[in-house]
């Protein structure tokens, strides 16, 4: 291998690499953000959390509609206010009630889903901070294709639906 590579060429090679890194840094990252914000065409209403005392798990409820022209797949949620957020469905059979994990939910164009008492709910585990009735809590809904949508949930009292 010839070690006496002219300085100019070596600089040229380095420049190529750093140019690529620059391109990736300047273009790719902001593009990813734009894509996330713009791509999920969903409408979310009536987002609320029912407060329980202490650090008991809470339920988050909302209505979601696919307002776009392609299928949207809801794959989960996360929030800085909770250590874990899971999608659950309460199921009743023979007078017994239990919760099942839900991995993903498909919404056809125009389709709505209701996260509501005694059905689908976000299971909000281990608060990272104290919550009070009236608080606004952001929760990020995560969709297939690494797309997200932030939704603000209102904290309501224990005796509410």
């Amino acid at each position: 291998m010839n070690l006496s590579i002219p300085r100019r060429v070596r600089f040229g090679m380095l420049n190529n690499v750093s140019r690529r890194i620059l391109l990736l840094a300047v273009l790719a990252v902001p593009f990813a953000h734009v894509a996330r914000a713009a791509d999920v065409e969903v409408k979310v209403d009536n987002a609320r959390i029912r407060l329980l005392p202490g650090n008991l798990p809470l339920a988050g409820y909302f209505d979601i509609t696919n307002t776009g022209k392609s299928v949207v797949v809801l794959e989960g949620a996360s929030s800085s206010a909770f250590h874990h957020v899971m999608m659950h469905r309460s199921v009743r059979s023979n007078g017994q009630s239990e919760m099942h994990h839900v991995d993903s939910l498909e919404l056809a164009p125009g389709q709505s889903l209701h996260f509501e008492p005694e059905g689908l709910h976000l299971m909000l585990m281990h608060r990272t901070r104290k919550l009070a009735v009236g608080d606004q809590v952001p929760i990020t809904l995560m969709f297939e294709g690494d797309r997200t949508q932030e939704v603000v949930f209102t904290v309501r009292g224990a005796g509410t639906q």
């Binding site: 029912r50 008991l56 005796g159």
Partner: peptide
């Protein structure tokens, strides 16, 4: 049970609303 986030508080909330 208290760690029940959906069905139990929903039932108790309904009873609470009826009582009110």
């Amino acid at each position: 049970y208290t760690h029940c986030p959906d069905v139990c508080p929903t039932t108790l909330a309904r009873l609470s609303q009826a009582l009110s």
